[in-house]
Design a binder for these strands. Structure first.
Lengths: 205, 205
DNA sequence: CCCGAGAGTAGACATTGACAACATTGTTGT
DNA sequence: ACAACAATGTTGTCAATGTCTACTCTCGGG
């Protein structure tokens, strides 16, 4: 375990990951706007130019944060869905998915904002890929539901995107203070039930 | 009409609004991150400290931009809905609402990002109010639909928020580059139809 | 064993937001 | 008419920041 009391050798040896950790703490505490490379360097105890060896740019650091966020979000979404034992209980799985997203987004407000805001300029495919992997899961849920006849036919990816967008929008509004956090649960609930009602086959049976 | 070739009198006379205009141009051209008060001052031709007389803070300028954005958005949403002559054609009005939002958001990418990102810290009620006025309209649509029996009963504001969140989420994903702009129209379409299918009364008389 | 690449350091520079002290103008009360 | 006075702009200054360049340290492989 690295100790801060330890006499730092000339080479830190673990700077990149520690920078990411410190950056995430700062992000949580003061937001992306306030995040300063020099601050992180100070906090870790290296010179102000050291971060540049690992991140070409302030933006590169933020992108790395966003990417890491998407990876973790994807993992948590997958875990939440898999936690529903009954593989055929689509409503439960959908609700688990939505709840997991909401929990992540409200527990990581600034991070989520960063993830949604970071415009992926040409070439920065890493972030986009991580994001796609995160919400791609829901397409699978839709497809399975359609295969079992529980859902109306239709482009599964499109439908999945719409659901994802709904949850994203709700948490975005809560996180930006447009609506009170107390309404979150209720909104997610009506969103999911609304979708299920609208997506069931026209001729039941 | 004010000319830039004119000898500027000591008092500019219209600095506040011209600052906002210049700020919006800069926002559109380089994003909120890059917006610099000194730049705006230079562009307008006043001293670097002049903006401070009208905006206490860089953040105050951005907040004003966001508020103005919400006001204009609200107007365009209202106009779009009112443009549908048949007051009882709920689907058409919903679609008009969604389309208008999408158009605004894709025509004003950075502005929309700013509006959604600006965390309204305690006391900054102006932005929140403008936002509420913008999306509050949809609750009215829902209520009318319910009154005519075209929609299932339920908290109209909650339902309205869910729709708004869906459209917001879709455009957010497009604007952040997560999905290609070409899919926008189709996604909005499925979102609206999905909602309408799910919201119709259970026993259609 | 040495030497070169990777990793950290030190110094410099332009830019920025914020602040203070001062200048100019328009307004208002008398 | 005119003297305060409040708005509005200006100049000067300061600390902080991102980024760049040149230098230093350390370690592992020929």
């Amino acid at each position: 375990m690295p100790d801060t009391t330890e006499q730092r050798p000339y080479h830190h040896g673990n700077l990149r990951v520690e920078l990411l950790h410190a950056a995430e703490r700062s992000l949580r505490a003061h937001g992306a706007e306030q995040l300063s490379l020099r601050d992180l360097a100070r906090e870790i105890g290296v010179s102000h130019a050291a971060p540049r060896r690992h991140f070409a740019d302030r933006r590169a650091l933020l992108d790395a944060l966003a990417e890491s966020g998407f990876v973790r979000l994807g993992a948590r979404l997958r875990a939440a869905v898999d936690e529903i034992d009954d593989e055929e209980d689509l409503p439960a799985r959908l609700y688990a998915f939505a709840s997991a997203y909401v929990r992540f987004a409200t527990e990581n407000v600034a991070l989520t904002g960063l993830m949604n805001a970071s415009k992926h300029r040409p070439g920065a495919t890493a972030v986009a890929e991580a994001a796609a992997a995160a919400f791609g899961q829901i397409s699978d849920l839709i497809e399975e539901g359609q295969a079992r006849g529980e859902l109306e036919e239709g482009d599964p990816e499109g439908i999945g995107l719409v659901i994802y967008a709904t949850v994203l929008g709700i948490t975005s509004m809560v996180n930006s203070g447009m609506i009170e956090p107390g309404r979150l649960e209720g909104l997610v609930d009506t969103a999911v039930t609304q979708f299920l009602r609208g997506a069931r086959p026209t001729e039941p049976r």
